[in-house]
Computed example of a mutant assay.
Amino acid sequence: MKRRNFGLGAAAMLGLGACSSSKFLKYNGPEVTGMVVNKGERRLYLLHHKEILEHYKVDLGFNPVGDKKVEGDGRTPEGTYYIDRRNPRSDFHLSVGISYPDAQDMAEAQALGMKPGGNIFIHGEPNTYKAKGRDWTAGCIAVKNKEIEQIYAMVRDGTPISIWA
């Protein structure tokens, strides 16, 4: 009798596990070899060489025109960087880090007597409040939660990302 109850309990747990959704998706498709953000179009493209694998609508920093120069300017950086980290416990569902600032960004900010800022990510929606309007981040690139789940699964650390106006 105990063995039967254990078997039924285990089957129920496996069934529930199959119904639950995880934000950690699996991806077995073509390698993402690059990413492009077109700030003017408000679009993020995932590329396999020259082929577009996926594209997403994005929100940017609250001051979206121009290149990020200093901490607190609300701008999203422009240039070529790479994905350098990931945060499964992000305040914005999930996030992948962008290697901003680079040496040039630091030198430009230093010439202005300022700090360049940092912690630039591609991330999902806020966990604790609702984003208001377009271009609401402090300089990051935001997508919907389901989309950051795809990006998180598809993109590897070291993937280059070009961000341009």
Rank of each mutant, 00 (worst) to 15 (best):
R75P: 09
I120K: 03
R4L: 12
G17Q: 11
S22P: 06
P77E: 05
G72C: 04
M35V: 10
E125Q: 14
E149C: 01
G9C: 04
Q104L: 07
R43W: 10
Y100E: 08
V65C: 09
I141F: 01
F92I: 08
R134Q: 13
M114C: 06
H49D: 15
K146A: 13
A103G: 09
W136A: 02
G15E: 08
G61N: 14
I161W: 06
D59N: 00
K146Q: 14
D59A: 06
R42H: 13
V155Q: 04
E54R: 08
G66T: 14
N119L: 15
A142F: 05
E108H: 06
S99R: 05
D59P: 03
E54M: 05
A131R: 10
E41L: 11
Y81K: 02
R75W: 05
V143I: 01
F62I: 15
K130A: 15
S22F: 12
L94V: 00
G124Q: 03
E147N: 09
R43S: 15
D73S: 10
H123A: 07
A111C: 06
Y152M: 00
R75E: 13
K50S: 15
K144V: 05
E41S: 11
T33F: 09
W164P: 03
R4M: 08
D135E: 08
E71V: 09
L8C: 01
L94A: 08
H49R: 11
G17A: 11
G139N: 03
V155W: 01
T33Q: 02
V36W: 01
K144N: 09
P126S: 08
I122C: 04
V36R: 12
V155H: 05
D135R: 04
K69Q: 08
T159Q: 01
K68M: 03
D135I: 07
Y27D: 00
H49T: 11
R42K: 13
A10Q: 00
R42D: 07
I161D: 03
A103T: 05
H48V: 02
G124Y: 09
Q104A: 14
T128E: 14
D157Q: 14
Y45H: 07
A142I: 04
P30I: 11
G118E: 11
L94K: 07
N119S: 14
I120A: 06
T80N: 07
E149M: 08
C19F: 10
G7C: 09
Q110V: 10
D84S: 10
